[in-house]
């Protein structure tokens, strides 16, 4: 195992910027966001997690999926696939696990080339958590605070240094090709292990084998929902999207865009003839919870929640996913 001095992390990222687009955490207005580093951006290493989840860099809030032009009755269609090589630094273990969940959706049956193209072109350097944030509960799903698969490199804060573990060949190459890494000692590994254990202790533990969605509990919470859709937009595992065409009526050139959509939006399931198979706020809320805690597990074999706590921190009605889990566990 290797380690890197805290001061050298920024140097490493600057080095990487020569070859890659580097995405890393920066502070904007006191809040932390992931951003493609440009001149003048200041990296922060002091954060629990970003407000908006990293999925934006893989399944963007808005993206063009094709362009078309119409001339003389001919329609030509062109797709846009990105092939930029990127390094994503600082992604938390819960969010890496969220990407693994998005992968299972993108890979099942027909593949989603836009998302998977970005995934394949992006190296992940994950930063393990040594202290849980308010409302974090990755311990419940085992999606953190430590990480054993899904990223190329995993960094753990051990004081003046980060312990560095490579999980893939590409990660290994990155480490061996750089002067900033040095050999870690057994003591370093021990420190990291202790910190991880401490972090887990600071979070809830639930036995999910005894869990089932308690619909009565969920219904009660649903009544408080204010329809702001925030939970779905900031969630790292929500993948639903809408597709919209735009065309310039003069040039007859246009584009097909996709946007994040929210199952909390009444028109999400609306059909012709005013028929809506999922009517009412309770029905939509119930679907969101069931989707994450039942349907995803039954279909893809993984829970659709990684315990990042974003939806709890940002819900104006104080609705808590953790409470739903806690109250669904049979005593």
């Amino acid at each position: 195992m290797k380690k890197i001095r805290e001061d050298d992390v920024i140097k490493l990222l600057n080095e990487l910027r020569k070859k890659y687009e580097v995405i890393a955490p920066v502070k904007l207005d006191g809040r932390v966001y992931f951003k493609t580093l440009g001149e003048g951006d200041v990296l922060t290493l002091d954060y629990v997690n970003s407000v908006v989840s990293p999925k934006d860099f893989f399944l963007p809030q808005k993206e063009r999926i094709l362009e078309f032009s119409e001339s003389g009755g001919e329609v030509t269609v062109e797709d846009e696939l990105s092939s930029k090589k990127r390094v994503f630094f600082g992604i938390r273990p819960c969010d890496v696990n969220a990407l693994l969940i998005l992968d299972s959706v993108a890979r099942e049956g027909f593949e989603d080339p836009y998302y998977l193209g970005r995934r394949d072109n992006t190296l992940l350097i994950s930063l393990e958590c040594v202290e849980p944030g308010d409302d974090c509960f990755c311990s419940v799903f085992n999606t953190g605070p430590s990480l054993d698969e899904g990223a190329d490199l995993v960094f753990t804060d051990i004081g003046d240094f980060y312990l560095v573990k490579s999980l893939t060949d590409e990660g290994e190459r990155l480490v061996s090709g750089s002067e900033f890494f040095r050999k870690a000692t057994g003591g370093d590994e021990e420190t990291a292990g202790k910190k991880r254990k401490e972090c887990v202790k600071g979070m809830e533990s639930l036995d999910l084998r005894n869990f089932s969605v308690d619909e009565e509990v969920v219904k009660e919470k649903a009544k408080r929902c204010l329809y702001c859709y925030s939970c779905t937009f900031i969630c790292p595992t929500c993948y639903c999207f809408d597709v919209v065409d735009r065309m310039d009526l003069y040039s007859r050139n246009g584009e097909r865009m996709r946007f994040w959509d929210s199952c909390m939006n009444p028109s999400f399931t609306e059909m012709a003839g005013n028929f809506n198979p999922r009517d009412g706020m309770v029905g939509r809320f119930m679907n969101r919870i069931n989707h994450k805690l039942r349907y995803m597990r039954d279909r893809y074999g993984v829970y659709g929640c990684v315990g990042c706590g974003r939806c709890i921190r940002n819900c104006p009605a104080g609705i808590s996913m953790l409470e739903i889990l806690r109250e669904g566990v049979r005593k």
Partner: peptide
């Protein structure tokens, strides 16, 4: 029939339970 956007199991619009 359900509202559909992608037709290929990606957009999440058309679910009935886990289907």
């Amino acid at each position: 029939e359900r509202r559909m956007k992608c037709g290929i199991g990606k957009c999440g619009h058309c679910n009935i339970g886990d289907r």
